[in-house]
Structure formats: C-alpha cells, structure tokens
C-alpha cells in the first residue's frame, strides 16, 4: 500500500482551477518531486494535502486514512510535516523554541501540569528540549539554538524550517521549494540533507524549480501544468517527455 494516495483531487478558486483531477501515489521511503511552471498549482496541492485548504473534490488517503476535511493540526498529528515556500518561522522566538513548539502534537502536558510541574511535566519538558537539540544538530544549527530565529541568515532559516517540520515527527515531509533563493553551494548542501532525511526513513515530497537538483535526487516525478498532471515517471522519462518540454519552453513553432 502506498503511504499517500491522492484520487482526482480538485481545487477551484471561483472560476480558476488551481488543481484539476490530480491522481497519484507516493510510496514509502522515496523522494517524490512535484514540478511545473509558476502558477501550476504545486503549492495549492500542498495546502490541500496539509488541510490548510479544503479540496473542492477528490480524496486523500494517508496510511489508508481519509484526511479530507481534517484540520491542519490533526493532519500534522497523523504524521505529515511541512515547510513553507515563503519562510514562516516564528521570528521572535529562539531557534530552539521554534523546534520545541513543533513537538506540540507529540506531547501532552496541559496548563494544570505546567503550573504544578510534577515529574511527568519535567520529564516531558526535558525530552522536548533534548529532541529539539537533536533535530537542530541534524540540520547543523545547534550552535545557534539560543539566537532569535529572525537573526538567522536566509539559508539557515530554511534549514530551521526543516528541523521544525522534522520535530513534528512525520512519516511524510512536504518541502515547498526549500532551495528557493539559495546559491548553488547551499542548494547542494540542502540536497545532501534531503537525501539524509530519506536515509532516516522519511518519505519526502519536494517542490523544486531547479531541474538539475530535481533530476539528480528524485525517485519519482510528477509534472503539473495549469493544475493538470501532464506527466509522471522516473527522472529520465520526464526529461524526454515532449509534453513537459512544451510546458516549460513552449511549443516548437513549425512552418
């Protein structure tokens, strides 16, 4: 059984069909890329999968469970983590706190236990902190744990988002253009990180523009154009697919 099954997912905004009848499966343990020109509906697709937007039509099954209609925090609880295209860290909290917050759905202690501070609370709090540091070490940010998140340079903020997504302890991680705005060096480092995520046993859905990156790392690619899935396959197939070339470069003009 596939980890994620999407069946005829459609999202319309008024007359605009942002995603139309998308059907695909994501197998466990792979790097699955979603590519397509600007405005193809990639981020809308992500938002539908994570519950930020409700799909107009269609079904989404995660581990065999229907997730359509669930709230974003419930979906996070089920095991889908994500990053955002336009960085959305918590700027005024420290780097460490950013990652600590993300363990919310994996922890229990409420307001009463926070006041009483019994054994359970102290233990949980220590474990939250310990794990947060672990995730920061994974993305190589543990040295900056105490700095305010807003003080990080751009590339580090992107990596912090990944650490934060990891801290929700997901089986499936959605990365929305994690390399946007990075230089080739940073992008290469990031891709090593994504590869390590896979080795850690996470399944990854990646939105990315940089073709070299996508082709080098992906196990499976789907291509969206104007909300419609126009192709899917392994990287080599996608590169040769005339419909994909057309979507990116336009149709060859013949006399």
């Amino acid at each position: 059984m596939a980890l994620l099954e999407v069946r005829s997912l459609t999202k319309t905004f008024g007359g605009l069909r942002a995603v139309e009848d998308a059907t695909f499966e994501v197998k466990e343990g792979i790097i699955f890329s979603v590519i397509g020109p600007n405005g193809a509906g990639k981020t809308t697709l992500f938002n539908c999968l994570t519950g930020i937007l409700q799909p107009t039509k269609g079904t989404v099954y995660f581990e065999g469970k229907d997730t359509v209609g669930l709230k974003p925090h419930t979906i996070t609880g089920l095991g889908i983590g994500r990053t955002f295209q336009n960085i959305r860290i918590f700027p005024e909290m420290t780097v460490l706190e950013n990652v600590m917050v993300a363990q919310h759905s994996r922890t229990r202690c409420g307001i009463i236990s926070a006041i009483i501070r019994g054994k359970g609370f102290i233990h949980e709090e220590a474990s939250i902190k310990e794990k947060a540091i672990e995730y920061l070490e994974f993305v190589n940010l543990s040295d900056l744990a105490k700095s305010p998140a807003s003080s990080l340079p751009y590339g580090d903020q992107r990596r912090l988002e990944i650490a934060r997504a990891l801290a929700t302890e997901p089986r499936l991680i959605l990365l929305d253009e994690p390399a946007a705005g990075m230089n080739p060096q940073e992008t290469a480092e990031l891709m090593v990180l994504v590869e390590r995520l896979r080795q850690w046993g996470k399944t990854i859905i990646l939105i990315e523009h940089d073709m070299r990156v996508v082709m080098g790392i992906s196990d499976w690619i789907i291509v969206l154009d104007h909300g419609i899935k126009i192709a899917e396959g392994i990287p080599e197939e996608i590169q040769r697919n005339p419909a994909v070339v057309e979507a990116y470069l336009g149709k060859e003009f013949t006399y």
Binding site: T50, I52, P72, H73, T76, G77, F84, R88, F90, V101
Partner: peptide, 10 residues
C-alpha cells in the same frame, strides 16, 4: 508569531 505555521506545527 504566525498562526498558519502554528497550525501546521500541530
């Protein structure tokens, strides 16, 4: 700080 991100963090 960011309601949407908070929601996505569970």
């Amino acid at each position: 700080e960011d309601e949407t991100a908070a929601e996505a963090m569970g």
